[in-house]
Amino acid sequence: MDYLVESLKVSLSLILALDPELCQAVRTSLYVSAWSVVLASLMGIPIGLAVGLTEFPFKRSVITLLNSMMAVPTVLIGLLVYGFVSRQGPFGGLGLLFTPAAIIIGDALLATPIVANLALSSVRGANTAILPTAMTLGGTRFQSVLRLLSEIRFGIMAAVISGFGRVVSEVGVAMMLGGNILGSTRTMTTVIALETSKGEFALGIALGLILMAVALAVNIVFQILQRR
């Protein structure tokens, strides 16, 4: 019990003091997570829509593949992207390894299958009358799909939020591709990993609490946004 009380004290004092390194880590986490979820949404939502709304050969296999891609370990994605962005890799010349951009790429790949799958489920769960209704009222296919997207926005938002939750809490990609560089690629989760490795459990737990609070805050903001 003392231990947890102590952690809470440390956590509160860090937050109240607006510890600059802590703030930096929170900022970095939000920055890479937000960008990667934007990218993942731009890829995942169209994938979910395309798979959900069209018929094509091997559709079932594609859905199974999408599902299993949700279970790909973060370190595997980290390793894959590492191979591409390291100076030895095909995109080495861009110098992306150990930058926030590298984490964003990895996290976007991590979140895309999640966003795509959940978007797909909402498309498949949507009322089948939506598209014909929009079309008979004169909508083009594109306008009608936008209408559909608007009708299932709760599901789509849930997909985006799940993607955000996944990337903001993951450590494998951030550690491998970011390198845990102080003031640059050190995120909340890599700080937790680092502090734990240094035996600073109290600080690790404190950061964990902050991470949860940040995730909660983001969710609340989105909830309010949906209610409106």
């Binding site: 920055y31 937000a34 979820v37 939502i45 989105f222």
Partner: peptide, 21 residues
């Protein structure tokens, strides 16, 4: 009624830009 998912994405973008280094 309009593209409300777009609003969420816009919010995320705003967040991304706001916390940019």
């Amino acid at each position: 009624i309009s593209g409300i998912p777009a609003r969420g994405v816009l919010l995320l973008l705003a967040l991304a830009i706001w916390v940019a280094p």
